[in-house]
């Protein structure tokens, strides 16, 4: 087990974002965290990344609390742009290289080239699509044990989505686990091993994608519609 949540709760002043989630994420698999906006996917990922502190419950990475060691091994990509305003694409790469031992600068250059970005481009002047590609390049240039990608296809046009999915699959190694949150279920259906459906901050359904399809006689897209419609 690489990531384990037990009865995890995150409450804000007048809202419960995560409501008693218990979930085990196994090594070497691709998970889809599915659910509409506001269902709690992002908060769950941010708790696992160490950005948000849970109100109660526990979350462990390889049996240890989230902290410095997990941050060395987990590559998290948020849905919002997060680079400093002064940064160019090259600065962003140097920053990652300075802080993450698993960052591969050569791989970053390749990905930047593939995403049709320039090293001198300013992060803050990039269009939303290009900014999303920069986040993906920086995150996937790490040789992490767990990748958590929050809405990686947001703002990406249909043609480029294929390129992003191919790039995500390139990092899917035996020892790498990928957790992707999205509401674009049809785009993910063909690549995932497991599906976790989140509804109102709780796990509505969780299981092996193929077992769910066979067991219910429906595609993941249809199950999604059944749960959230």
């Amino acid at each position: 087990m690489i990531l384990q949540c037990n009865d995890l709760v995150k409450k804000y002043l007048n809202k419960t974002a995560v409501n008693g989630i218990s979930l085990d994420i196994e090594k070497g698999r691709i998970y889809a965290l599915l659910g509409p906006n506001g269902s709690g996917k992002t908060t769950l990922m941010k708790i696992a990344a160490g950005l948000v502190k849970p109100s109660s419950g526990t979350i462990t990475y390889k049996g240890n609390p989230i902290g410095v060691e997990s941050k060395k091994r987990v590559a998290y990509m948020s849905t919002e742009p997060f680079f400093y305003n002064y940064m160019t694409v090259q600065d962003a790469g140097k920053y990652y290289q300075d802080f993450f031992e698993d960052f591969d600068a050569k791989r970053y250059e390749e990905l930047i080239d593939r995403m049709e970005l320039g090293m001198k481009d300013k992060a803050k002047t990039l269009s939303s699509g290009l900014a999303a590609k920069l986040k993906i390049a920086a995150t996937l240039a790490r040789k992490a044990e767990l990748y958590m990608l929050d809405e990686p296809l947001n703002g990406i046009d249909i043609i480029a989505r294929e390129k992003i999915i191919t790039t995500i699959l390139e990092v899917a190694r035996e020892d790498a686990t990928i957790l992707i949150s999205s509401h674009l279920v049809d785009e993910l259906e063909k690549i995932i091993d497991n599906a976790v459906f989140i509804k109102n901050g709780s796990v509505a359904l969780n299981g092996d994608a193929e077992d769910l399809r066979v067991g219910r006689g429906k595609s993941i897209v249809e199950i999604y519609k059944e749960i959230y419609a």
């Binding site: 160490g50 950005l51 902290g67 410095v68 998290y76 948020s78 742009p81 400093y84 305003n85 802080f99």
Partner: peptide, 13 residues
Amino acid sequence: QKCSYMLFLTPNT
């Protein structure tokens, strides 16, 4: 601001 992620995602206490 969201750029705080750049800081708080780094493996530092």
